[in-house]
């Protein structure tokens, strides 16, 4: 695994597991219609954590209902269904309300992709604070390692999240921007108090 903070890329020659294959399949549809960033648990799994997850969290840039219609249609053609509703307008209205909607392979509920629009500035910044993970079979855009650590350690804070943060920190400790983590910690704590 090679991480270049300057290029904002990680070269990963790992063998894909079933979750990676599904994530690549989903992303390849998604990125035709909107920008996306993978956040939270799956990032640490992609980077080697020995745990599974029931969902992959994804921020997508806000899109029009027309574009969403095309995206939803292609997701359905690719064998995905939405767990929250079947009707396109209903799914889109959930997204616009700031709610997350989940997609899984038709007939299944897990693993699923939890898709949401960014709500606050802190979320929106993720689209400019990312790393691309290059795999042999495709590429996956994740939020920056510092952002991952800060969110897990200072916002989510569960045992699992603290362990995910430790994994990423131990793996890349000589290449992390600790000032950035501290700055994000301050912002996260301010948001948390509101």
């Amino acid at each position: 695994m090679e991480y270049s903070p300057e290029k904002r890329e990680i070269i990963l020659s790992r063998k894909l597991n079933n979750l990676d294959k599904l994530a690549i399949e989903f992303i390849q549809v998604l990125e035709k219609y909107t920008d996306y960033v993978i956040i939270s648990g799956y990032v640490s799994i992609l980077l080697g954590r020995t745990r599974a997850t029931e969902d992959v969290d994804v921020f997508i840039e806000k899109i029009s209902s027309e574009k969403f219609s095309k995206l939803y249609s292609e997701l359905k053609n690719a064998g995905f269904w939405c767990l929250n509703a079947e009707k396109e307008s209903e799914i889109f209205s959930y997204l616009y309300e700031g709610l997350a909607v989940r997609f899984a392979k038709k007939g299944k509920v897990a693993p699923n992709f939890e898709v949401k629009f960014p709500k606050i500035d802190l979320d929106k910044e993720t689209f400019n604070d990312f790393v691309i993970v290059f795999l042999k079979e495709g590429k996956i855009k994740i939020s920056s390692l510092e952002r991952q650590i800060a969110f897990k350690r200072y916002f989510l804070k569960s045992e699992k999240d603290m362990e995910d943060a430790l994994h990423i920190e131990e793996l890349f400790k000589d290449q992390l921007d600790y000032e950035k983590i501290n700055n994000l910690k301050e912002v996260i704590e301010k948001v948390g108090k509101k």
Partner: peptide, 27 residues
């Protein structure tokens, strides 16, 4: 910490093979 050290000194293919056993057994 032990697993991260393992990742650092083994090839991506080698550690991911083991990680995949954990993940594929659940998915």
């Amino acid at each position: 910490k032990f697993w991260v050290e393992y990742i650092k000194v083994h090839s991506d293919e080698e550690w991911s093979d083991q990680q995949n056993e954990v993940i594929n057994s659940q998915i």
